[in-house]
Nucleic acid binder design. Structure first.
Lengths: 115, 115
DNA sequence: ATAACGTACAACCAAATGGTTGCACAAAGA
DNA sequence: TCTTTGTGCAACCATTTGGTTGTACGTTAT
């Protein structure tokens, strides 16, 4: 899935199909490359479930699948969560190690950098 | 950057270096592949600024760069925002269309769908 | 019916990728 | 000193990737 997102052309296709459903050839007309090249990019995005296609006459209408985008984002959010918990653990160590004796954690509102 | 995240080995390295800073050879010992292969993966992550290295004696200690992870997540969040605003726009159209004629647009014969 | 359009897919090609081994070199240790 | 360890880099190889052209086939228009 990250592989599917790894090309700017595909991210652009994703952006366009988020904004509005459109056919493969309409998409293809937006780029310098051949129709077949765009069609392959669409196929990669489809395999990653980042878009879905719908048949309408001879056209295939492409639209983004927001579920999958949310999933990618959630995965990265988990990495950030790992980071926060690591900081929290270090924080605990620092709170315990010195002989300050105070077992209760004083103000530990620290460097949260996520949004 | 998404390219750097596109391999499970590299995502795993990222995960490990989030949890704790460690040397390249320590990382390499965790995988079946050769040291050089892991070293190249680390180099890719470093080029994408997803990790940073620090020299300590002959070792190179690797740690994750949470800023960059947040940035990747923010980019995906923007796609979701696009989706939400698209839904909101459709919502507006549906709210306006039935009542209040308001024929401001002179030649709106081709009633754009979506945007 | 015939032409034009939209799509899919195969074959092909150059470049990038993910892996290997081997070598060079600095730092630690015997 | 000599050896071992940790690192980086180059050369090489197989596979994947991103692009091309060509072909086939169903749908729409003339």
């Amino acid at each position: 899935m990250f592989h599917a997102l790894a090309t700017s052309t595909r991210r652009d296709i994703l952006r366009r199909t988020i904004e509005r459903e459109q056919s493969v050839s309409t998409l293809a007309s937006e780029y310098e490359m051949s129709f077949a090249a765009v069609q392959k990019h669409v196929a990669v995005l489809e395999a990653a479930n980042l878009i879905v296609k719908r048949a309408e006459g001879r056209e295939r209408l492409v639209r983004a699948n927001p579920e999958m985008i949310a999933r990618a984002r959630a995965l990265l959010a988990r990495y950030e969560e790992l980071w926060r918990s690591r900081i929290a653990r270090l924080d605990d160590l620092l709170a315990e190690a010195p002989s300050t004796g105070a077992s209760d954690r004083t103000d530990n509102t620290n460097t949260e950098q996520g949004d």
